[in-house]
Design a protein around this nucleic acid. Structure first.
Length: 272
DNA sequence: GTCCAGGCATGCA
DNA sequence: TGCATGCATGGA
């Protein structure tokens, strides 16, 4: 990867295995919006970004070097060798064609609080509604950024909301989960940063203590918000996929089963 | 009107 | 442990 700082933009050359359409709209993040010019706008850690793939180069608009180095470099997982990972995954029979078909999916390193809340909201819900609820949450309680985008409100902001405040966002029966979760994180009863440095099993155990967080939500949060690439969220689609792996997950998934899961999810949606 | 959405808590065996 | 059931909401 070559990084060019030019004026207010940052241009990335030679980024391997990054398809923005597949990565930003595959159900791991819910706030990216495709613009008429084909670029994507979104925000992370309270910072707005517009990013576009132009003839193989990635252009990050109006971004400072500091924001790139402290947020986006890690957010898009730019220092991981996805070519090598995809080559490994393709040694599995089922993924050999799927990786080619959906080449360029990366795991986004999202803010852990946003990821945890988002996947609590996502349970027994469809992606369109999930996006609508989260957008309303941010518009109502987040801070205005650029171009009509908002930050994801932190736990200190949300801990004062009542259950009916959350219900007013359309969260339904998940409102009570979000209310209690916000209070627990704001009070320090739950420390998300400490969970990041635990082992996968220990981190999972901690998240499962949270009211409204089960195995699927915990694993999604761990994978997309806590940096655990070996977390393997099992949803209704993965349960169907697992029938194709009667002996369990193959060895080539070791350490990166979460990345494999993203490809399997696409395959399942189109083939099962 | 019915069914479903990338589940979870609860109660019961 | 393992399984059945209720749960909020909106779109198909």
């Amino acid at each position: 990867m070559k990084i060019n700082f030019t004026g207010n933009d940052i241009i990335l050359d030679d980024v391997k295995c990054l398809n923005l359409d597949l990565t930003l709209d595959c159900g791991q993040a819910f706030r990216w919006e495709k613009q008429p010019d084909g670029s994507w706008s979104g925000a992370a850690d309270g910072v707005f970004l517009n990013i576009k793939n132009e003839e193989g180069r990635f252009i990050l608009k109006n971004t400072t070097k500091e924001n790139f180095e402290t947020i986006w470099r890690r957010y898009f997982d730019l220092d991981r060798d996805y070519e090598e990972i995809c080559a490994r995954l393709k040694s599995d029979a089922l993924l050999s064609a799927t990786v080619d078909e959906y080449y360029g999916i990366r795991i986004l390193n999202q803010n852990s609080w946003e990821a945890l809340c988002s996947f609590v909201i996502s349970q027994q819900n469809n992606i369109k509604r999930i996006k609508g609820i989260i957008k309303k949450l941010c518009q109502t309680y987040g801070e205005a950024l650029e171009n009509g985008f908002y930050s994801f409100p932190d736990a200190k902001r949300l801990c004062s909301l009542s259950i009916s405040d959350f219900e007013a966002l359309g969260t339904g029966y998940r409102a009570k989960y979000l209310a209690r979760l916000s209070k627990a994180v704001a009070s320090g009863e739950i420390d998300l940063d400490k969970i990041k440095i635990l082992s996968l099993d220990e981190a999972r155990k901690e998240l499962l203590k949270i009211y409204g967080v089960g195995t699927k939500v915990a694993d999604c949060a761990l994978l997309f918000g806590f940096g655990f690439y070996d977390a393997f969220p099992v949803d209704v689609w993965m349960k169907r996929v697992m029938a194709h792996y009667p002996d369990g997950l193959p060895a080539c998934f070791d350490g990166i089963s979460g990345i494999a899961q993203q490809y399997l999810f696409h395959w399942a949606r189109n083939n099962l």
